[in-house]
Design a protein around this nucleic acid. Structure first.
Lengths: 195, 195, 195, 195
DNA sequence: GATGAATGAGTGTTCATTCAT
DNA sequence: GATGAATGAACACTCATTCAT
């Protein structure tokens, strides 16, 4: 038995880590963070509990990794839109549409993120990182509304964010019967006249 | 030598129950349902764990009582507005203002209610009761927007509800620096022209 | 309000004590000693928990009183038979019949007594008292078998006692379908020839 | 560095399970099911409470396993006798002797089994299984007494069973001073004449 | 890299008992 | 004589985490 090469080891590691994260996300999102046990994650992922602790320092770190990845995912999507589109109204339209699409495609993910926003006991250190990301996002929105020529771009950004989050909230609670497209159209009416 | 009178007992009971509920609400709201232990509630309330079980059949019932009381509180406020004011725009204005006032005055309650909307592992039996109350509320809102003369009152009601909930959500996350009044004003712009 | 007379007080006491004992026996026998709580006994007896502790020093003493009374009941029955009947075979016959009659009429009672014979953790101090009573009873039986002219009256007494207890045991487990009368007849065949 | 082999794990598991069962049997038998706590079993067995729950789903399952094993032990012994011996009187003699031998060698087991016959609040699901085994045993006894040429083999079987159980009962209560051999001889006198 | 037996602090809950009234 | 609010030690059970292999 020759020792595994570095690349082989790396591949094995990556696969196990991916499996664990995927399973954990699925379970956290479906059953909640507290109601999901490490044993369950390990069993469902087909790895031992010990291996899980080789890759993550504990249950909380596992959660933090998942949340950070989710935040980065959003960041990438938004940056993409902001950089490839020039017209502010078109940016807003794409941003809105893309937000809802992400929610639709990944309901579990977002359920988890949102539910944890209220669990101040979990997280703690992650909070500052996420807040920083949120600040950047709000800054981009303020800029967008300024370019749209609105009088009070700061509050308009907050208003828009609240509206989108409120709709997401309701969609998460109601499910697929929620008229997401109708809401999307209604959001934009406010800015269409201004255009 | 004679046993305590019924009134005396009732007073003692009420005081203890109030203490327990108040403490539980505070803790559930701040740390989350799962992360708050019965021992902690009892200790913070200054009573024994045993006494808590004299008044509530368990941790879950304690939560249910708190949620039902919160739901009833809203119900009363809204009914009051709907019955004492005739003009639909004025109703909407009052409803919005009152909602934000309630949140401001009772942040704990609302943190708890909102956070539990995502904890599908708790509740279960209470869900149907709360859903029924929500349906009634939505119905009242649809009627209001119809009286306002809007074209699609159903979706307008959902839009309004999402907007208000989104703002509440953000207020809960940001705290007292959040420009609640500014948002309140922005909400109403949509309906002012129609008036 | 004139103070109650001594006799009145005594009557009140007796009634309460009787009520508590009756209820406790019923519950202990039906649900088992450990599965019956003091609260339940008090509630079912219609008295307060405090009153119960006025009359009995605790749950265990309550049980001991019940067991002692049961033991005395048997003692009385047996003494009655031994004193009013002269012929040893007739005594044996009456003793057997009476034993089964008592079981039949008071199944719960006996279930309790028997089940507790195996719970060495309960009781302790009562054990010596009950053993003394048992010794007396065995002595009477030995004497009876001696008068019957049997060769080894000591072992015959033990044999008879085991037989009766075994039948009682099975009757308690099977219930009213058990052929108690048939067994009664079979018991006596051993001694009929000797007569 | 490599994980333990399956065989190694199995050996470790078996040892722990054996230790737990042995301790639990000892304690259940001596102090009764309700009066024995899981903590006590774990401590006495020299393992942690958690380990106990790795192997048994709870206190009740632990009990059930012990009872089932006891029942199977009897079954095997009896089947052995019934299959290797042809003469019915010799079978009866062996059965009696073997029964008492088993009791002597395994007093704990039997104390537990007997005491639980009266604890109707425990068990429930196991009852049907045990009753089925008992029916089979009674059936075999009836057949034996029929082959012995007795007039009423059904009731003779019940009589014999009661007698044996009664003696066992007394032996369990009295201990090693009980004249088990004398009783064994007395039992058989009834059937010796018939032979 | 990987395992899973083992731990123990923690959970929610029960209940015999006390005592101020 | 009588009450029941209050206690706290004990219970069965869970699970994140460790570590020998």
């Amino acid at each position: 038995m020759s020792p595994r090469s570095k690349a082989q080891n790396e591949a094995i590691r990556s696969k196990s880590i991916f499996l664990i994260k995927e399973t954990a996300l699925e379970l956290f999102a479906h059953k909640g963070y507290h109601s999901t046990s490490i044993s369950q994650i390990a069993k469902e992922a087909g790895v031992s509990k010990g291996l899980l602790y080789n890759y993550f320092s504990g249950k909380e770190e596992l959660l933090e990794v998942l949340l950070l990845e989710a935040a980065e995912e959003i960041e990438v999507e938004i940056t993409e839109i902001m950089e490839t589109i020039a017209d502010p109204f078109e940016q807003l339209k794409q941003l809105t549409g893309q937000s809802f699409l992400m929610i639709k495609n990944n309901l579990h993910h977002w359920r988890l993120v949102t539910s944890l926003a209220f669990q101040t006991d979990v997280l703690k250190d992650l909070e500052s990182v996420l807040n920083a990301k949120k600040e950047v996002l709000i800054g981009q929105m303020v800029d967008l509304f300024r370019r749209l020529g609105m009088e009070d771009p700061v509050n308009e950004a907050l208003y828009f964010a609240a509206l989108v989050d409120g709709i997401i909230l309701h969609y998460m609670m109601v499910g697929k019967d929620y008229p997401l497209e109708k809401m999307e159209a209604l959001i934009l009416t406010r800015y269409q006249n201004i255009k």
